[in-house]
Design a protein around this nucleic acid. Sequence first.
RNA 1: GGUGAGAUACUCAAGCGGCCAACGAGGGCGGACUGUAAAUCCGCUGACUACGUCUUCGCAGGUUCGAAUCCUGCUCUCACCA
Length: 432
Amino acid sequence: MTMKNFIEELKWRGMLHQDMPGTEEHLLEKMRSAYVGFDPTADSLHIGNLVPIMLLAHYQRCGHRPIALVGGATGMIGDPSGKSSERNLLDEKTLRHNQECVKAQLGHFLDFESDAENAAILVNNYDWMKEISFLEFIRDVGKHITVNYMMAKDSVKNRISSESKEGMSFTEFTYQMVQGYDFLHLYRENETTLQMGGSDQWGNITTGTELIRRISGGKGYAITCPLITKSDGSKFGKSEGGNVWLDAKRTSAYKFYQYWLNTSDEDAEKYIKIFTFLDKETIDSLIEEHKEAPHVRVLQKRLGEEVTVAAHGKEEYEKAIAASNILFGKSSSDDLKILDEQTFLDVFDGVPQATVSKEDIDNGLDMIGALAAKTNFLNSNSDARRALKENAVSVNKEKVKEDFLITSNDLIANKYVLIQRGKKSYFLLNVK
RNA sequence: GGUGAGAUACUCAAGCGGCCAACGAGGGCGGACUGUAAAUCCGCUGACUACGUCUUCGCAGGUUCGAAUCCUGCUCUCACCA
């Protein structure tokens, strides 16, 4: 089996931040195993985790074996990297639950199932860490690393010195040892010779290679990828609602797709290389196409498609497209009325709702009542009047005036009325 | 403890007896334009039974036909001096 040059691949995709000398040659020799750690602090990964996931996925496509390590043990300690304060600890039951969820999500990107030589493996460091006693650990592992070495790491320095008043517990100080031990363990058990991670993980990873060298006399390698930024300076992976999660229950496929679609032009060029498996020629021609007609947003659309299909599947992606067309396209009230109830609810998932009685509708519901008096969608009747005067209000996608009355003719699926203020705020009237 | 300055809407900040629901800026919202972007332009931004009425300018009283504006007390903030 010939290996595709993984380092080469990372370079043109802009995913290589640092690599340990000799890594490229090491990977070209034959199939190697590499791992990335995932933190099971929640029952879902978010798109911030997507970069390390893609590292593994690209790695597998280059012919190597990816290992996803769920940090059951390390998650109990908390990584001090980039954290200014002590972290809360999770109990074992929560961790186990989270691990199961994370595992399912990784399956969308990595091939765990096939019997190919380089099928992905999932491991949990709790499984080996729980057997080790404290005495054993400090004698067999701790003996090999000096405190001086550990103190020199940025993650530790930042917390102990300078303006940080919080200090750092012994537990967090130990973190790098525990993570380092993972590498040693995988090196011994699975012939894992490479650890990858975000650039903030460099310090932790090198503690691992150090342990491998000192204890086993072997050689471990390291690759880090840059932290993903957004050109406008805001944080990647956050929308108004908080994190963008991979779990559809937390972030609907529609919102997930929208997040990618709203990427700025500049970022889209970067992201399409990182978050999709498209080859260089395809991406180059897409970028070319995008430059000629930026308003068509081919880059954003393709990016959204690739990532959404990967994370949620083709069907969910198509629903997201349909929803997007309804919300942002030139859809009319007729388009809305065709929708079945379930699709309708999916599209307007998370939109504020209020219930009004059937009689109100039969008598004809005036717009002040629909917007404020009976529903509290807007803060006050004045606000409602203002919105109407501004020509901002639509019922079922059609602009209405102050004297409009909602009647049973306006019901969608016989029980809903869609009200809008402006382009972006939607309200759903539920008729009972 | 002493002296001085201040407290105005989401934020900053005018106003210092009637023309004040309160200038202006930022923010927010809406409209036009547009690519579901950026920039730009325009409008709105206390409430209500709405050409009018009511409640708001730290809190409580008072003077006056009339107070955010003047007086008294209180609370808090800031600056300077002990």
